[in-house]
């Protein structure tokens, strides 16, 4: 049986205590929310923190507040199941509920949290392996090795951003609150991520992601999410496309397209989205331009499921499908 390494567990009851513990133990410590990412990674000895700070006992992380007219705040410890079944969230941003429903499997959605899904470690099939397997390739750039086996001459790690909620939250303009002993700050989700497989978050090591703020939506915004994976459950996105648009009398006023699974962070296809502005969502020329521009951003590498050439081709298809979903959402 795969077992966890030995660790000391802390169960703070307040955010202040949690931040204090994190600050005290520094890099020796990891935060755990639902545990569906950290525990397997620890069992594979990808990470061996000696202190683990559990957030489940902190009450303020478990609330959803607000309304579609004011926007909503979702506590980081809200489970993916609770998120997808929350009437307010589903009414305001159905694409977010949809993306949450596509994550992994029902028991893992019961356990996994929105905060955890945003902070999900980048994935790579040279990395999500046991210690012994990684030793047999002499490790990799992400940890203990000197070469990124995905791109051997690369100075950077190409592990893949694999969160299903992140691209949707980027597309709808959500924000997150980060808290540490030094205080609190609120940043757009788009700024939470960095294009690096190792340092993939702009979250300082002493910060806790406490809440996700969903912008208000009285129906002027539409959003969609398309996910590519081999099976109907279990699998992480090999490609995910989130799209969002604000329309005025059928004409796009504002649009965002975000791709995941094809880089170390969710990639916002700004130029692609711009092609839709001022056009109708079923304008074939505008859609074709958006698809071409978005697909150019997708640079899949050989470190997930499916052949990479085909994945590149599928990004075209999925961007078109996500835009078609937007058009149909009206």
């Amino acid at each position: 049986m795969m077992r966890l390494p030995r660790f000391q567990y802390f169960a703070p009851r307040t955010l202040k205590d949690a931040a204090g513990l994190l600050s005290h133990w520094g890099p020796e410590a990891s935060l755990v929310a639902g545990g569906t990412d950290l525990w397997p990674n620890m069992k594979r000895r990808q990470f061996t923190p000696t202190r683990v700070i559990g957030l489940r006992g902190v009450p303020e992380l478990h609330a959803i507040t607000g309304s579609p007219s004011t926007g909503m705040t979702v506590g980081a410890m809200i489970s993916l199941t609770a998120l997808e079944r929350h009437d307010g969230v589903a009414a305001m941003w159905p694409a977010l509920a949809h993306a949450a429903r596509l994550i992994s499997t029902p028991p893992l959605r019961n356990m996994g949290t929105l905060g955890g899904n945003l902070c999900l470690d980048t994935r790579c099939n040279y990395w999500n392996q046991t210690l012994e397997w990684r030793k047999s390739i002499d490790f990799c750039l992400k940890k203990a090795g000197s070469i990124c086996w995905v791109a051997t001459s690369s100075p950077r790690c190409w592990a893949v951003s694999s969160s299903d909620t992140a691209p949707v939250l980027c597309a709808i303009g959500a924000e997150v609150t980060l808290l540490s002993t030094e205080g609190e700050r609120r940043i757009p989700v788009t700024q939470l991520f960095r294009d690096d497989g190792i340092e993939y978050l702009n979250k300082r090591s002493n910060e806790i992601l406490t809440a996700v703020h969903l912008p208000p939506n009285g129906g002027e915004w539409r959003a969609s999410y398309r996910k590519l994976r081999r099976r109907g459950s279990f699998d992480f996105p090999v490609l995910g496309v989130a799209a969002a648009a604000r329309l005025d009398r059928g004409v796009v006023v504002e649009a965002r397209i975000v791709l995941t699974g094809v880089g170390s962070r969710p990639h916002e296809a700004t130029e692609a989205a711009e092609a839709l502005v001022g056009k109708r969502l079923d304008d074939p020329a505008a859609v074709a331009t958006a698809v071409e521009r978005a697909a150019r951003l997708a640079k899949p590498l050989d470190n997930t499921d499916f052949a990479l050439g085909w994945r590149k081709e599928m990004s075209r298809h999925h961007v078109a499908a996500a835009i078609a979903d937007l058009a149909a959402a009206g």
Partner: peptide, 17 residues
């Protein structure tokens, strides 16, 4: 090496497949 000696990456069909 075995490319992915795991139940996640060795694809076994689930109920939805």
């Amino acid at each position: 090496v075995h490319k992915f000696p795991s139940l996640l990456e060795y694809k076994s069909p689930g109920t939805l497949d």
